[in-house]
Write a protein that binds this DNA or RNA. Structure first.
Lengths: 229, 229
DNA sequence: TTCCAATTGTCACATTGACGACAGTTTGTA
DNA sequence: TACAAACTGTCGTCAATGTGACAATTGGAA
């Protein structure tokens, strides 16, 4: 992957884009590229942390498993997004499993480098704090969604967020989300059948169009309206 | 309130207790005491932040409201716990309403002081980062609970956490939680009737004893076992 | 082209849990 | 002691949703 291309992806991310030029360059230069195949494991819950990551292409699925083996998906991490800082900072184990969803490319900043950057340059600390605040706010939002919204509302919210993520990458100027109804069900902790019923109703309302393994967003505003809290 | 008494409460909290002596003293000295009556509002969602707080006595209820006016309780903040740092750090508005639950005493570190401490002494930043990490992990736990556990499991988890909070304060060597079934229902986003049914079953299992406005914990281990993920 | 795996569409059925209703109990206060 | 407010115990009803089943469709690989 070309450096210019990596740079382009990184800059789409608001947090990275807000870094002072010297810090951004520093971080980018000290990272290595890492490839994962579909379904390959990056790390598991309770592993000790080895690095700070950024998705370049593909997706990372962050999830946990119940005692009975049911998978609970927290989120899909889309290109441009950094993750894994929590365990690096507090020295505690990983909070979630991280699996590649499709062939995936990552930037990896090794733990030693991360620690070095943080200790060497005080500038870094405020930016890591901001990243942590974003994480907390995103997590609070998720809690609000699951608590306040009907399944339909939650589904609309997720579709809207996935669409926004797709837009941010810009590579593709499409309204087509490649995601199965099964996967959507996991994202909102629901069942495929229920998701199908909701998607059908959204299709009737002309908000989306259903395709095999894909969803076409016809009316993003309607999605957002349906997912208001 | 006596300074020694304040000191005692503060030291029960693991985060505060882990601060270097000079930082702990610094923070404590620059705080003012603030009293709230039952149901009094400390701040509302979307307010701009004015300070960093610690509960000394009483409780703070952190919650949001749905469009239809239903209250969604995130948590009750117990004595010794600090909160409110997110908005101070990222300059964005408050994430939740904060109401006093019963007569409540707080320590308040005004925004200007907080900013000053953070900018003046680089030592502070790592400790604030650790607090943020705790916040993220606690929030992830909450998501896991609501996703993985039955209502009974969630209820057991909450009872267990409330009991732990009570223990940490130490003032009282009792196993009696003063909380109505109504309030418990709010904590797990359920209904009073359902909570009552679950509590009855726990009483039958000799895990708790029900009293008017109170719950006596008979078997903490059983609670923890029932709330395993 | 043919076949297989993944995905979708749809149904009936069982379970969970919210909600309204109402009676009974406890506590604090006048 | 009497009363009101808060709290608890319990029912029946109803809507939401998980689940198993099975047929139909689609896309990719042999």
């Amino acid at each position: 992957m070309q450096s210019a291309e990596v740079n382009y992806i990184l800059k789409q991310n608001p947090w990275f884009a807000s870094l002072p030029e010297n810090l951004a360059k520093q971080l980018q230069q000290k990272c290595k590229i890492k490839h994962l195949n579909d379904k390959q494991i990056l790390h598991q819950k309770n592993d000790m942390a080895d690095g700070f990551y950024c998705v370049l292409t593909g997706l990372i699925r962050a999830s946990n498993f119940t005692l009975e083996g049911k998978e609970l998906v927290l989120t899909w991490i889309q290109p441009g997004n950094w993750f894994g800082e929590i365990s690096l900072i507090d020295g505690q184990p990983r909070t979630h499993d991280a699996h590649a969803e499709g062939a995936t490319t990552l930037l990896m900043c090794p733990k030693a480098v991360f620690d070095f950057l943080l200790s060497e340059d005080n500038q870094w600390q405020i930016h890591i704090m901001r990243l942590l605040c974003q994480r907390v706010r995103a997590t609070f939002s998720l809690i609000d969604e699951t608590g306040c919204l009907s399944l339909k509302g939650q589904l609309c919210k997720r579709l809207s967020l996935l669409h926004k993520g797709l837009e941010e990458q810009q590579h593709t100027m499409t309204n087509e989300l490649s995601i199965s109804q099964d996967a959507l069900a996991q994202l909102i902790h629901s069942s495929r059948q229920t998701v199908n019923k909701i998607l059908q109703s959204l299709q009737t309302e002309q908000v989306i169009k259903l395709r095999y393994g894909k969803i076409v967003i016809l009316n993003r505003l309607a999605l957002e309206k349906l997912s208001q809290i």
